[in-house]
Amino acid sequence: MGAHGKLGFILLASPLVLWLSLLIIIPHIDLFILSLQEKIGVRQYQTSFANYMTFFSEPLYLRTFLRTAFMSIVATVLTLLIAFPISYYIAKIARGRLQSILFLMCLVPFWVSELVRTFGWMILLRETGIFSNFLQWSGIVSGPVEFLYNDAAMMVGLIYTSMLFMVVPLVTTLESLDDSMIEAGYDLGGNGYNVLREIIIPHAMPGIVSGSIVVFMLSLGNYLTPIMLGGKDSLWFTEMIYSQFIVRFNWELGAAFGFLLLGLSSLIVWGALKLSGQTLEKTMG
């Protein structure tokens, strides 16, 4: 590599290096140091793992995390189950204009801010909302019904928020599946289930894995939806982190929670990849 090549490489790489170091690596190091500070008096700190210990010794924190992780897994599975037929229809059955229109319809809601979309669900689900009024009008129920502030409402919100991030990788991988593969699957005696199980799903596996990782991480790190649709009864781990930082001014514990969320969620993703026999290289490659 000549001097020119070197200069070119430095110029090309510098935005990435700056972005990574200034916005991701340095703040994380700072937060990590912060998370290791144990408060022993007014403005007195010592380095210890006490903040991390708190997480494991206080059942509320641990349970909230487990609940958050479990709900996120459920949201991921449900999103996959809903998105797969939609993606298959868009990628393999719809043709031409219909295909673009359907894909656009998945995309358009994401042009609106997440906050507005969540308010949209609140308008539908609240006590004086559209669903409640419709049920009363049709005579199915006699009084107003509150759909908001429970796990189901939150799940609806989470799935809605994540749908696009599952549909896009699935459509991309399914589109790359040659139609003749599917035909060959039938031609050699397979039925719809066999073809799905042995040909379509294995082919779509990279899309399924990457979509699931993104949706799981988005759900786990979601703050708005659990707060607005889940209400007080649906405590989310991100709410804990928020309250440590903002309400209790306990940045040290908040930072520790942040790192625990990062570590534990990575552990869950790693475990799921191991369980399903997939690797990150295969998915990203």
């Binding site: 003749s180 035909e183 031609d187 050699l188 005696g189 397979g190 066999n194 040909i199 082919h203």
Partner: peptide, 30 residues
Amino acid sequence: NKRPVNMVFQHLALFPMMNIADNIGYGLRR
């Protein structure tokens, strides 16, 4: 999938997600 005819496709349509033995065994497993 019930017709007693089989087809060799233009681009062969071998299943890349399976090894050769599984490819050939696909119809037999059915």
